[in-house]
Nucleic acid binder design. Structure first.
Length: 1018
RNA sequence: GGGCAGGUGGCGAAACCGGCAGACGCACGGGCUUUAGGAGCCCGCGCCGCAAAGGCGUGAGGGUUCAAAUCCCUCCCUGCCCACCA
């Protein structure tokens, strides 16, 4: 018997496939069922060779591609390297090699490794992003963005990584640290190139609904785009500082514009806040009496990294909470804003918790209903006014409806409020459910008198309503109703006899200052969910202060939290009682505000002050700039490099190290940056920054098509347009979830732009996207420091690529990732060994390999075996389609177990081997090819069609029906398929163990699930 | 703090449109092949019982149902992503 030598077999077929162009599709005219573009995220070859995570992803994608090929599609499965950019440059820095040289070394190593894993790559179509013939088109893309008004330059405070010495996009800053090197990110003001991706925000969001992508990636993109519906509101500004320079009306905008998603809370806006970088801070300098202080604050805030700004914000989690922590800000003294809703004069602050880059860079602060404003207001003693009575839930019709009321009872002489104290320490307001025929005011005063005895009041005023739910210990709602709240001012503390309800007899009256009540309020909802009464208390106290009764409470200090959520508007003049959702637009209209949709998405920062990337193909001419001339009116002096001059080749710069001056190393290469102005011919300067790596990878799926058949096609050619029409969009894209928002969003943006320019006929580049999971080792993350990194080379050497591929896929579903355990791979090795042997046995050791194999006569093989085979075909086909390779492999193992039994009984028919090997071919391509050829086939198994299952072959003729008594298994009966319920029941009753369980009791009910289970209920 | 995914034997995991929990594989135990090894074959393997009978078992607690890993409610834990976005 021939021995199984995977090493020899794998090498042999890898060479043969390459020679035969087995995996090269017919680009011009796809064969058979048509094209299938099977794309996997290309790797960046920076680290120490191919990682097992790469191999996991590639294998997962390759199996799918091979499966589609065997389904009859002409599959394009290209591969390339994303080797241009910071990560590759950093690797070069680390190993001390020049990136030009290093890229060649990495390329060789990666491609060599990639050839060993057994993927069906179309090698002719490979691309490398650092190849000038590739980045010619990356630069071309930049030029198109410029020509279409989507590229612009602006000075911006940007994220600056002090270690990588470059600008980072927001997406590359993780919790204030650099995504790649982990250094704390700083802020710097630099002129940068941006792409207007925000112009596409709406479409990028909307199209998500129509594409077949992993749901979590869609969610991540939706969150990133971050659409919010709100309003732009204007606050007039006034000043009591005598005008020195500018008149307040002459600052360009005599009002402050804010964006808010909660215009319904406008009446509760008790101050406004500008971001430190807001233009009005500078413009109003003459009107700000403490400008020095303000300017110092703004300067400090601008230099702070986001990390520091956030650290200054709420950090309630850490116990090291020092007094230093908390929000910071400075009031603009001398300036006031007018709340347009109630014409109230309110203070203006500048604080770094407001971001300059979002909305209008200014907010109206509603501390009662926003956590951040609340925290700020508390710290600086600013007023907090509740304007929303929260809804505590939605009642169900079945629940008993009972309205009620409560009172905030204040004694002006002692400056204290009345509270009901329960024996177990629970504190609440006086009040309760109304009796029949009572209304709000009368009923509430009645309840107060009943519980506290108090009845002599000088002032009673309704201050709020909410729809409340009362819950039992299990938090189930047992009663719902409208609850009203009244502020009640005591005339005298005369009391009459109490008539409390039985459960309230132990209740007693206590007087406390507002803050103390709030402090003692803890956990009232242990028994009933009455936290809305706390909101009423705040409301009542605020009103008592307003009326001048309460002179000791400081409303800024006693509430314990902001009230988030929606409900009915209160304290808002004529809008009182309106649902907050409605009030949003009514109030917006009332103050002549404007409805506005705001996106979280920012423009794409393209510039990188580094060496290893495609130079941005732009030229700056000072002469034209001075004359106001240029390709873009708004940006005089700027010209795109003419397309005939592309690519702008990256010059060889020996010292490519970033210097940290905010300039690319190219800025010191005179021969590079000195050029002639394309318009006027005067001395001009080339842009010396390079572009972001994500621009390289945003269009690489098109790049592969350019390389097809060694073509020299280009975008814009009609032949290339036709090629793109045939092959795009990508049918299946598999990659890591870590690119959910970066690469995938930019690619979508670019393809949408190409579509708008009339160059491609699709908007979405990837029809289907699936994210593979992560590979961990023995339950732990792989890392070099732990020394537990799986090196694929070693395993391929030891077990073969087929075994490694299959083991990786057997661990768990592809989308889940897997736990790599060294011992586990042996199971796969054994399996492949048995597949090898069972095939060798049929090839009869006595004859030569080339003579006819000794198959069993088909007629001798029972239908039962064929049924198992067909069930396996069905299962494997379906599982591959849904990327559940683990269960597909398991089904194939079961089939082999059955086949070995069958072999002993009757021998195995030819059809078994053909189908079995084909089903295994996507998983273990080398061995299957070898065995397939040994069976006498002349062409590749990978170009064969998958076996099809026959529906009629799946039907069992005898089935086991489980017999349950009261839902517990007590036995089973074998019956013919289609046996009537009565017969099954009779048979079930005659089973000994079933009869024993019934113990002669009468069967009350029988549930029969056809062919599966019969449950006898007694 | 928010979003997403998940929690099932000693381990990786199956089953999840409610219907025999633990398929398949690893590890482990026993046997066979006169067996030096990470070789092969057969048997066993959730837990408590010598065993049978039986009972208990899918993060915890409750609920719906003839029947719950699966559906509902409350809570706990882990991983990943995001996080002052008004």
């Amino acid at each position: 018997m021939k021995k199984y030598n995977f090493s020899r077999i794998e090498k042999k077929w890898q060479a043969k496939w390459l020679k035969d162009k087995t995996y090269e599709p017919n680009i011009e005219k796809p064969r058979k069922k048509g094209k299938f573009y099977n794309l996997m995220m290309f790797p960046y070859p920076s680290a120490e060779g191919l990682h097992v995570g790469n191999m996991y992803a590639f294998t997962g994608s390759d199996i799918y591609g091979r499966f589609k090929r065997m389904e009859g599609y002409d599959v394009l499965e290209p591969i390339g390297l994303d080797g241009f950019g910071i990560h590759s440059e950093n690797y070069a820095l680390k190993v001390g090699t020049h990136p030009v040289k290093q890229s060649k070394v990495s390329e060789k190593r990666f491609y060599q490794q990639l050839r060993m894993i057994g993927n069906g790559f179309a090698w002719q179509e490979h691309v490398e992003t650092y190849d000038p013939e590739y980045y010619r088109w990356t630069q071309w893309l930049f030029v198109q963005m410029w020509r279409h008004g989507l590229a612009y330059r602006k000075k911006q405070s940007v994220n600056w990584c002090p270690k990588d010495k470059t600008v980072l996009a927001d997406e590359q800053v993780i919790a204030g640290k650099c995504e790649r090197c982990g250094a704390v990110v700083e802020k710097r003001e630099l002129e940068q190139w941006f792409f207007k991706i925000t112009e596409y925000a709406g479409r990028l969001l909307k199209n998500l609904d129509a594409i077949d992508w992993a749901e979590k990636v869609k969610i991540a993109q939706r969150n990133w785009i971050g659409k919010s519906e709100g309003a732009l509101l204007r606050f007039r500004l006034t000043s009591d500082v005598p005008s020195v320079g500018v008149n307040i009306k002459d600052v360009g905008r005599p009002y402050l514009e804010v964006f808010t998603t909660r215009p319904d809370t406008l009446f509760g806006a008790t101050y406004v806040v500008l971001s430190p970088e807001h233009e009005l801070v500078e413009k109003l300098k003459d009107r700000i009496s403490n400008f020095k202080e303000v300017a110092a604050y703004a300067k400090k805030a601008a230099g702070k990294s986001d990390e520091e700004r956030i650290a200054g914000g709420k950090d309630l989690s850490s116990h090291k909470a020092s007094a230093e922590r908390g929000k910071t800000g400075v009031e603009l003294k001398g300036i006031k804003a007018i709340n347009p809703a109630n014409d109230e004069e309110i203070p203006v602050w500048v604080a770094d918790y407001v971001l300059g880059s979002y909305g209008t860079g200014a907010i109206m602060a509603v501390p009662a209903h926003d956590e951040r404003d609340f925290e700020f207001a508390k710290k600086f003693g600013l007023p907090i006014r509740q304007v929303i009575a929260l809804e505590t839930g939605i009642p169900r019709p079945s629940e008993e409806r009972r309205d009620g009321g409560c009172g905030v009872v204040f004694d002006p002489r002692t400056q204290k409020y009345a509270v009901a104290v329960h024996p177990d320490g629970i504190v609440r307001l006086f009040g309760g459910g109304f009796n029949d025929g009572e209304d709000g005011r009368e009923g509430t005063l009645h309840e107060i008198a009943e519980e506290s005895g108090l009845y002599d009041f000088s002032h009673v005023e309704e201050i709020g309503t909410c729809f409340a739910h009362y819950r039992n210990r299990r938090k189930q709602v047992y009663r719902s109703g409208l609850t009203k709240c009244f502020l009640v001012i005591l005339r005298s503390d005369k009391v009459k006899e109490r008539h409390p309800e039985p459960h309230e007899v132990n209740l007693h009256l206590e007087w406390m200052p507002a803050a103390e009540i709030v402090k003692n309020w803890k956990g009232y909802n242990q028994e009933r969910d009455l936290d809305h009464w706390l909101a009423f208390l705040r409301e009542g106290v605020a009103r008592a202060i307003e009326l001048g009764y309460d002179t000791t409470s400081n409303p800024a200090h006693f509430p314990s939290e902001a009230l988030l959520g929606v409900g009915k508007v209160v304290n808002s003049g004529k809008f009182d009682g309106v649902d907050s959702e409605e009030a949003k637009w009514e109030i917006t209209k009332f103050v002549h505000g404007e409805k506005k949709t705001q996106f979280h998405l920012r423009d794409w920062l393209i510039s990188r002050q580094r060496y290893w990337g495609p130079p941005i193909p732009m030229i700056r001419c000072e002469v034209c700039a001075a004359a106001g001339k240029g390709e873009n009116k708004e940006m005089p002096g700027w010209y795109a490099v003419p397309e005939k001059d592309l690519p702008v080749k990256l010059p060889m710069v020996k010292d490519f190290r970033p210097e940290g001056k905010g300039e690319s190393p190219l800025a010191s290469v005179k021969t590079f940056y000195e050029v002639k102005c394309p318009a006027c011919g005067s001395k001009a300067q080339r842009e010396t920054d390079v572009s972001d790596t994500f621009l390289d990878s945003s269009w690489y799926y098109i790049g592969y098509l350019m390389k097809c058949n060694n073509g020299k096609l280009k975008i814009g050619d009609s032949a290339f347009a036709e090629r793109m029409r045939v092959w795009l969009p990508v049918d299946m894209y598999i990659g890591g979830a870590e690119h959910s928002v970066l690469h995938l969003l930019y690619s979508r943006f670019v393809s949408m732009a190409l579509h708008d320019w009339g160059l491609v006929d699709f908007e979405e580049p990837f029809t289907t996207f699936r994210a593979h999971g992560l590979v961990i080792k023995e339950g732990a993350k792989m890392s070099k420091s732990k020394g537990n990194v799986v090196n694929p080379d070693e395993y391929i050497k030891k077990f073969g690529a087929d075994a490694l591929r299959m083991y990786l896929m057997f661990m768990a579903p592809l989308e889940q990732g897997g736990d790599f355990r060294d011992s586990g791979i042996l199971g796969i090795t054994r399996f492949l060994d048995r597949v090898w042997k069972i095939t060798q046995r049929v090839l009869d050791p006595k004859k030569s390999v080339h003579s006819a194999p000794a198959f069993a006569d088909t007629h001798h093989v029972p239908d039962g075996f064929k049924r198992i085979l067909h069930k396996t075909i069905k299962k494997v086909t379906e599982d591959i389609e849904s990327l559940q390779y683990n269960t597909a492999i398991s089904a194939l193992m079961i089939l082999l177990n059955e086949a070995e039994k069958q072999e002993k009984a009757t021998g195995l028919p030819r059809y078994f081997f053909e189908d079995f090997l084909k089903l295994l071919a996507p998983f273990a391509p080398h061995i299957m090819e070898e065995l397939w050829r040994e069976l006498g086939n002349k062409s590749s198994i990978h170009l064969e069609s998958l076996p099809a299952y026959e529906e009629k072959m799946l039907k069992e003729n005898a089935v086991e029906v489980i017999v349950q008594v009261n839902g517990k298994r007590r036995g089973s009966v074998m019956v013919e398929a289609g046996t009537s319920e009565e017969t099954v029941q009779d048979r079930a009753l005659s089973v000994e163990t079933v009869a024993a369980a019934l113990r002669g009791q009468k069967v009350k009910r029988v549930i029969y699930i056809k062919g599966k289970i019969i449950n006898l209920v007694i």
